Structures are given as C-alpha cells and as structure tokens.
Simulated scan of single mutants.
Amino acid sequence: MESIERVSAAAEAADGAAPLDEATWLTLRHRPESVRSWVRDEGFALLVGVELSVVVHPDARGRGIGRTLLEQALPEDGELRAWSHGDHPAAAALARSHGFERVRELWVMRRRMDQPLPAYDDARVRSYRPSDAEELIRVNAAAFAHHPEQGSMDAANLEERMAQPWFDPAGLLVAADGDRLIGFHWTKQHSPELGEVYVVGIDPAAQGQGLGKVLTLAGLHHLASKGVDEVLLYVESDNHPAVAVYSGLGFGHADADTHVMYRR
C-alpha cells in the first residue's frame, strides 16, 4: 500500500490529475482482498473486477515499465476497462496496441469563485439528516441507474464515503417533498482552496423542474461560504443538457481536463 500511495502521489503532482479514482481507493482500504496487484518501486498495476489501473512513477516513464505492468496484469480474454486520467498520448498508444478502444470521455469543468453567484430560493432545499440515508440511496440508484460507478452505492458504501475525512453533513444538500427526497447535491472540499460538485442526483420523477440547477447553486453557495477559490466537477462529455447547465453557471472546460475510458 505504501508504494501505491507514493507512486500515485508523484503521478498526481506531475500530471495534475489523480491516477486512481475514489472507488479504487475505497476498495483498496476496505476490501483489499478483492484487488489483484502487481507492485514495483517504479509503478504498479491493479485489477478490481474488470477495472484495470496502471500507474508509473514520473521519474521512470519512457522505459517500458507501463507496458510490462500491463502485460503482467492483462487477462487473456474477457472485458476490461481502463481510465487515462488526463488523456495521455502514451496511454492512448498503449491501449491501442493491446486491443482497447476509446469508449467514453469524462470532462473536468472548473469555476473560479471570484465570479458572482446567482441567487436561488427554494424552500425544499436543506442540509442532510441521518434519517435521510435510505431515501438518499433510493434517489441515487434511480438517478444513476445507467451509471455503474455511482448507481451501485448501497448503505455500506454510503457509510464508507461518510467516514472519509472530507465529509461534512452541511455540504450534503437535499431537496425534500414531504418525507421523500427528490434530489441531492453532495459537495466535497479537497483543500481550503478547492471544492467539488461531487454528485448531483435528481429523482427521475422530479426531472424537468430545474431542480438540478437549484441544487447545484445551493452547493456552490455552501462552498463559497467555506472560502474556496475554485470549484470543479466531473461530467460526461456527451451529457449535453448537464454541460449546458454548468456552462451557464460559469464552469468551463479545457482540453487537458479530459479523462478517457478504454475498453477491451
């Protein structure tokens, strides 16, 4: 674990993007027996189900270590998925040479918080309460039914996320209609300077009411009250309605802020 953390930290510092996502870190820390790993001083490969990660220390790149790790970890057949966090040309070439195709792009969009925020007024929006847990899981599952990374969140996974050092109940905003939740915006604060629109989920039965924009604004006002300088979010590049909402709220996307999924 120490080598994985060390190489990951060095790669993130060099690339400006974390090489492992939150789900992988949670699995490593809470269910390490479900992770197959190939670890050396210069890098590592991890296989979690059909999710493959290969990370090489910046000082050791260009020596074929990534290719060696990939070929050690690569099963002979079966579906595999792998992310390139930052759309690296070397990762694209390695993927092509081993039968992977580019299937998905995830954009990072960013907003400077010195821009004025529009006001919002919706009495349905409030902070999370522990009694909301079951409803939050229900709305999340419905909102992300076709999104495997997010939609599978259950009570145990919710508890794991809420046990993370960054979790702040005041930063989890929900919209309620009586006893039922109809949407939520979970914010995250990475540092005193950086916040994140972590997850915005709307019950399909409540879509079309502008609730996504309202909840996004509620979370942005919360992060502004914490004094962050910048807020980022992740959105599918082909989710044009969401991109339009976020663009209208002052978020922008740079080509370098693109994460790519490859699949075999």
Rank of each mutant, 00 (worst) to 15 (best):
Pro58His: 04
Glu230Leu: 00
Gly64Tyr: 06
Gly86Arg: 01
Asp114Pro: 00
Leu215Lys: 07
Met113Asn: 05
Glu134Ser: 14
Glu22Tyr: 03
Pro118Gly: 09
Ala90Cys: 02
Asp41His: 01
Leu136Tyr: 13
Arg264His: 13
His88Cys: 01
Val174Gln: 11
Ile65Gly: 00
Gly151Ile: 07
Glu42Val: 00
Ala60Val: 04
Glu230Met: 00
Pro192Thr: 08
Thr68Cys: 02
Tyr120Asn: 10
Gln115Pro: 02
Glu101Gly: 14
Asp121Asn: 12
Trp107Lys: 09
Gly183Val: 04
Ile202Asn: 05
Arg36Gln: 00
Ala170Ser: 14
Ala141Asn: 09
Thr216Ile: 08
Ala123Trp: 11
Lys188Leu: 12
Gln164Ile: 08
His253Met: 05
Gly99His: 09
Ser131Val: 13
Arg40Glu: 14
Leu80Trp: 05
Arg81Trp: 15
Arg161Gln: 13
Ala163Arg: 12
Gly86Asp: 04
Arg63Ser: 01
Ile202Lys: 06
Ala176Tyr: 14
Pro241Trp: 11
Val35Gly: 00
Tyr234Asn: 05
Gly62Lys: 02
Glu193His: 06
Val39Thr: 10
Glu51Val: 10
Leu94Arg: 01
Asn140Phe: 03
Arg126Trp: 02
Val200Ala: 09
Glu159Ile: 07
Gly62Glu: 05
Ser8Met: 05
Asn157Asp: 13
Ala206Cys: 14
Trp107Glu: 10
Ala93Arg: 12
Ala242Thr: 09
Val199Cys: 12
Arg112Ile: 01
Gly16Glu: 08
Asp122Trp: 11
Leu136Met: 14
Met1Lys: 07
Ala244Glu: 14
Arg124Thr: 15
Val245Thr: 14
Ala18Ser: 11
Met1Phe: 03
Gly62Pro: 00
Pro192Gly: 05
Glu79Ile: 13
Ser127Gly: 15
Ser127Val: 14
Ala145Met: 12
His147Ile: 10
Leu158Lys: 11
Ala45Ser: 03
Met162Gly: 06
Pro148Cys: 10
Ser34Trp: 00
Val108His: 09
Arg96Ile: 02
Val243Ser: 06
Ala9Gly: 05
His259Val: 09
Phe167Pro: 07
Asp87Cys: 09
Arg67Leu: 03
Asp87Val: 06
Asp203Ala: 15
Ala145Asn: 12
Ala119Val: 13
Ala92Tyr: 04
Thr27Gly: 01
Val50Asn: 11
Gly210Asp: 04
Ala60Asn: 02
Asp121Trp: 13
Glu71Asp: 04
Ala10Leu: 08
Glu105Arg: 15
Ala13Leu: 10
Glu33His: 03
Trp25His: 03
Ala91Arg: 03
Arg40Ala: 13
Ser131Gly: 13
Arg112Gly: 07
Thr68Leu: 06
Gly78Ile: 02
Ser97Cys: 04
Asp132Arg: 13
Leu20Lys: 03
Thr187Ile: 13
Tyr198Cys: 09
Arg161Ile: 02
His146Val: 07
Ser84Phe: 08
Leu249Pro: 06
His98Trp: 06
Ala224Ser: 11
Gly219Tyr: 06
Ala95Asn: 07
Ser237Glu: 10
Gln115Met: 14
Asp229Ala: 02
Asp177Tyr: 07
Gln189Asp: 08
Asp41Gly: 07
Pro241Glu: 10
Leu69Cys: 12
